[in-house]
């Protein structure tokens, strides 16, 4: 299973998407925006590999873990504790977002269909990620990690919320927006990716 799943092309795609996660995620972390933007490569990886759902999940999880290790070691010491969040993002990407691949690549673009699919995928991924991240943020880091979303936690704490509530509310406020934007960027990059590259990654004949 492992041998045919990790073809050379897929291995290179995983590395490229991990590098994309690392680059965008590090910039956003360092400028303290109230979003994360560290999973664009993960979602894109699932979209590019998709018809083979199991391969899409395994490859995008490998991509997420690789970028988490690199970003955790080099830029953001908080990140390695969020592997659980990586897992649910990968599940959502491979089993939900990737289903919308045909809509994302449809020519001409159908804006309503495109937008609604992006919203559905983004909100579901965001809510799930927020629920999974909340206990880690609250119990391991006392509510504040290095990302800009800590401002939202601080706001809810200031309004008198308990720590876990504040973290969960902050997650439910910031994560759906963040993940919707990430799905949007991934979908647009997927749309822009040449068909022959996708065919090479999927191991199918090129189709325009």
């Amino acid at each position: 299973m492992g041998v045919c799943m990790f073809t050379t092309q897929r291995l290179i795609l995983i590395a490229l998407c991990a590098a994309l996660n690392f680059s965008i995620g590090s910039i956003v972390y360092l400028i303290k925006l109230p979003v994360y933007f560290d999973s664009v490569g993960t979602i894109l990886c699932a979209l590019l590999i998709f018809p083979d759902r199991k391969a899409a999940f395994v490859c995008c999880l490998t991509c997420a873990l690789t970028s988490t290790v690199f970003t955790g070691l080099l830029v953001n010491p908080f990140l390695p504790w969020f592997v659980g969040t990586d897992l649910v993002i990968c599940l959502c990407a491979a089993f939900l977002t990737a289903n919308f691949g045909n809509t994302f690549r449809a020519r001409p673009m159908q804006p309503v269909k495109f937008g609604s699919r992006v919203l559905i995928a983004g909100i579901v991924t965001g809510v799930t990620a927020a629920i999974v991240s909340a206990p880690v943020v609250a119990y391991l880091f006392g509510g504040v990690t290095g990302s800009g979303s800590a401002f939202v936690v601080a706001f809810f704490l200031k309004t008198g919320q308990q720590l876990m509530n504040a973290v969960l509310l902050s997650g439910l406020t910031a994560d759906p927006v963040d993940k919707t934007l990430q799905v949007l960027v991934s979908a647009l990059l997927f749309r822009a990716t040449p068909a022959d590259f996708i065919a090479m990654v999927r191991g199918t004949p090129a189709r325009v």
Partner: peptide, 21 residues
Amino acid sequence: PGAKRLAILTLSLIETLRNAV
């Protein structure tokens, strides 16, 4: 070996992405 290969490719592609920027 797969993990080693992935680590090297990722390091190389981070540089590729930097050049692409």
